[in-house]
């Protein structure tokens, strides 16, 4: 296979784009996709203070690296989940990456917040992945709001986004469907959230890391086995293989044609949010889900 751009030997094949690229041309392609996402959705403006949620995986490290290359000055935030062995490996990758790239890094320890994931796992009677996601969103939001960041960037990729859209469509969950998008504006105490990698797959992010010499944590979370989200990801992969380009068209068509309806629907009929009585995080109840979880763990 030859590079679609320069004719040299290709090292990355991208059937969804009917293209193959050599290393340097793939990096240009990747940069173009991120630029396009940022510009099309007005994700960042000059002077924006952007906080990148860094898990230590390929997506978040690729995002921070690319944002820096584009001239932004990202800061990183890593949440140490306190999972034996696994969290230490992830943290080491994030620390090594930020030190090498000169990206200021902040670390929040879930344990210090009374929310270490092993403790949480003992106290919930449902898959811990959704609870873990809720805790991370809570801690990222809290840090971004308390420290004046104008945007919180996450490494959600096209596979994550398309699978989430499919999962929420299967449930017709209107409040979640309202929030499936590349930008979530600041509202009701939520920081502004952006997803600059929404046009890129996890395969493309892994290639980017390899070609940019970014070492990432490739070991799966020991608690993630059997997560239902993976079923939706696999379904989308199968669809993409039989109909290349379907994943992005599913997601982008939703943004243009359906999401505005869900936004209106939630404005009219959705639950109203008020600050949590304990921590001021936006919630539809008196006390937010994370504070209720803390109370359960503390046995109150």
């Amino acid at each position: 296979m030859k590079c679609s751009r320069c004719g040299q030997n290709a090292v990355v094949a991208l059937p969804s784009h009917h293209a193959g690229f050599c290393g340097p041309c793939f990096l240009l392609f990747y940069e173009k996709q991120v630029r396009r996402a940022i510009k099309a959705h007005r994700m960042l403006a000059p002077g924006d203070c952007v906080l990148v949620a860094l898990s230590g995986g390929k997506d978040s490290l690729a995002l921070a690296h690319q944002l820096k290359n584009l001239g932004y000055k990202p800061h990183g935030l890593h949440v140490d989940l306190g999972i034996p062995d696994s969290s230490l490996k992830a943290r080491e990758k994030v620390e090594g990456f930020c030190a090498a790239e000169g990206i200021p890094l902040h670390i929040t320890e879930a344990r210090e917040e009374g929310l270490s994931i092993p403790e949480v796992k003992k106290n919930v009677h449902r898959p811990v992945c959704s609870v873990c996601g809720k805790i991370k969103r809570y801690l990222f939001n809290k840090f971004a709001r308390n420290n004046g960041y104008t945007a919180l960037a996450t490494g959600h990729n096209l596979d994550d986004e398309a699978a989430r859209l499919l999962a929420n469509t299967v449930r017709w969950d209107t409040s979640f469907l309202r929030d499936v998008g590349p930008v979530l504006e600041a509202r009701h105490g939520f920081a502004r959230r952006i997803r600059p990698l929404y046009r890129l797959t996890e395969f493309e992010n892994a290639n980017y890391c390899f070609l940019s010499n970014i070492e990432y944590n490739m070991y799966p979370c020991p608690y993630s086995h059997g997560a239902s989200f993976n079923v939706y990801k696999d379904l989308m992969h199968r669809l993409e293989r039989s109909q290349p380009g379907k994943k992005i068209s599913f997601y982008e068509s939703f943004q243009k044609q359906a999401r505005p309806c869900f936004v209106r629907c939630e404005e009219e009929k959705g639950l109203s949010l008020t600050p949590c009585r304990k921590c001021a995080y936006p919630t539809s109840e008196e006390v937010c889900g994370v504070c209720r979880l803390k109370e359960t763990i503390q046995g109150k």
Binding site: M1, A13, G20, F203, A206, F210, H237, R241
Partner: peptide, 18 residues
């Protein structure tokens, strides 16, 4: 599946499926 893996040779170069 080719879209789920990186294939790397002994010279640390990426290989396409063909």
């Amino acid at each position: 599946k080719a879209d789920q893996v990186l294939v790397i040779d002994e010279k640390d170069c990426l290989l396409t499926p063909d």
